[in-house]
């Protein structure tokens, strides 16, 4: 058939494209990660990788295992629902190795972060003008951070 002879170059072109497509499919099969599509259109293994990232905040449950006395003090006062690391910072390293000194937070900057008076804060939230209220005396001179109400020699409410 002359049509095949005269259109032969088109079949050659088709052959080149077919070879290209097959090469693509082979490469694709080789390079797409195995877990791709496990749960959806993404690499399923990525979920476990993200879940395995290191912790920096240990969580108050962990702190309370050792520091149950502080937890009891705290539970009795206004800071009952303020978790340890809200003030002490991330301490997973200390939890993993208690010999690492967690250090003490600086009350000069710590307390006013929450308690400096501002009209933007909810009215019911305890706020003070620190200068006027204490005149430079550190907050923990009068207030015990773990139970801040001043009653019966810095004890519970």
């Amino acid at each position: 058939m002359s049509i095949f002879r005269d259109a032969g170059h088109l079949f050659r072109l088709a052959g080149v494209y077919l070879a290209g497509t097959l090469t693509f499919l082979v490469i694709r099969a080789a390079v797409v990660p195995h877990s791709f599509g496990q749960y959806g259109h993404y690499r399923g293994a990525a979920i476990a990788e993200i879940a395995a990232k290191p912790l920096h905040y240990a969580g108050h449950q962990t702190c309370e295992i050792c520091h149950s006395d502080i937890a009891r003090t705290k539970a009795a006062g206004m800071h009952a629902h303020v978790n340890c690391e809200a003030c002490h910072g991330p301490l997973a390293k200390h939890a993993a190795d208690p010999s690492i000194d967690p250090g003490k937070p600086d009350v000069a900057t710590l307390c006013v972060r929450c308690h400096a008076a501002s009209a933007a804060r909810p009215k019911s939230f305890p706020q003070v003008d620190a200068e006027q209220h204490a005149g430079g005396v550190p907050c923990n001179t009068c207030h015990q951070p773990h139970n801040p109400a001043i009653a019966a020699a810095g004890g519970s409410k």
Binding site: L55, H56, Y57, G59, H60, Q61, H79, H81, V82, N83, E85, A86, P90, C114, F125
Partner: peptide, 12 residues
């Protein structure tokens, strides 16, 4: 555990 932001939020 809860998220880091929820863990340290002093007012819930």
């Amino acid at each position: 555990l809860t998220t880091a932001c929820c863990e340290v939020c002093p007012t819930g």
